[in-house]
Simulated scan of single mutants.
Amino acid sequence: MFSNSITCNLPFSCMTVARDSGSEELLPGKGSLEPVLLNVYDMYKINEYTSNIGLGVFHSGVEVYNTEYAYGGHQYPFTGIFEINPRDEKELGDQFKFRQTIHIGYTDFTEEDVKRIVNELGKEFRGDRYHLMNNNCNHFSGAFTKILCGQDIPPWVNRLAYFSSWVPFLERCLPKEWLTPMALQHSLSHIQDSVSEPSTPY
Rank of each mutant, 00 (worst) to 15 (best):
107 T>P: 02
192 Q>N: 12
188 L>T: 04
157 V>W: 06
153 I>M: 00
98 F>S: 06
178 W>S: 09
114 V>P: 01
154 P>Q: 13
106 Y>D: 07
159 R>G: 14
152 D>F: 04
46 I>D: 03
134 N>Q: 14
123 K>G: 10
178 W>K: 08
58 F>C: 07
177 E>A: 15
119 N>A: 12
39 N>A: 12
19 R>V: 12
40 V>E: 08
21 S>A: 13
139 H>C: 00
98 F>A: 06
146 K>C: 12
113 D>T: 08
11 P>W: 05
37 L>E: 06
177 E>P: 05
134 N>L: 10
43 M>L: 11
104 I>D: 06
10 L>R: 05
110 T>P: 07
72 G>K: 00
108 D>K: 15
75 Q>Y: 09
43 M>F: 11
56 G>Y: 11
120 E>C: 10
87 R>W: 06
68 E>S: 07
141 S>I: 03
118 V>K: 07
11 P>E: 12
54 G>T: 08
106 Y>P: 01
144 F>D: 04
117 I>D: 02
158 N>H: 01
126 R>C: 04
99 R>V: 06
13 S>T: 13
147 I>T: 02
74 H>V: 02
126 R>F: 02
146 K>L: 14
73 G>Y: 02
122 G>I: 02
157 V>E: 03
57 V>N: 10
187 S>K: 04
39 N>C: 08
76 Y>N: 07
158 N>G: 04
194 S>A: 14
49 Y>G: 11
4 N>Y: 09
105 G>V: 01
19 R>H: 09
28 P>Q: 10
115 K>C: 05
194 S>L: 14
153 I>V: 02
191 I>N: 08
65 Y>V: 09
130 Y>W: 09
170 L>S: 12
189 S>G: 15
37 L>F: 06
147 I>N: 01
146 K>W: 07
166 W>V: 11
77 P>H: 04
157 V>A: 04
107 T>N: 05
74 H>E: 00
34 E>T: 14
12 F>Q: 09
107 T>F: 06
166 W>E: 05
94 D>C: 09
130 Y>D: 00
73 G>V: 00
44 Y>V: 10
188 L>H: 03
186 H>E: 09
195 V>K: 15
11 P>G: 09
135 N>T: 03
175 P>E: 07
19 R>E: 09
180 T>M: 02
29 G>W: 03
25 E>Q: 11
182 M>C: 08
27 L>W: 07
94 D>N: 09
148 L>S: 07
85 N>W: 11
154 P>M: 10
88 D>H: 13
44 Y>M: 09
6 I>K: 12
168 P>F: 11
77 P>K: 05
46 I>G: 05
118 V>W: 05
20 D>W: 15
133 M>D: 01
38 L>M: 14
153 I>Q: 03
155 P>V: 08
47 N>A: 06
105 G>W: 02
41 Y>G: 08
30 K>A: 13
87 R>P: 01
4 N>P: 05
172 R>L: 13
3 S>Y: 11
23 S>N: 12
37 L>K: 11
140 F>I: 01
43 M>W: 08
39 N>P: 05
7 T>L: 14
156 W>P: 01
166 W>L: 10
126 R>N: 03
18 A>M: 14
169 F>R: 15
93 G>M: 05
185 Q>G: 05
3 S>K: 14
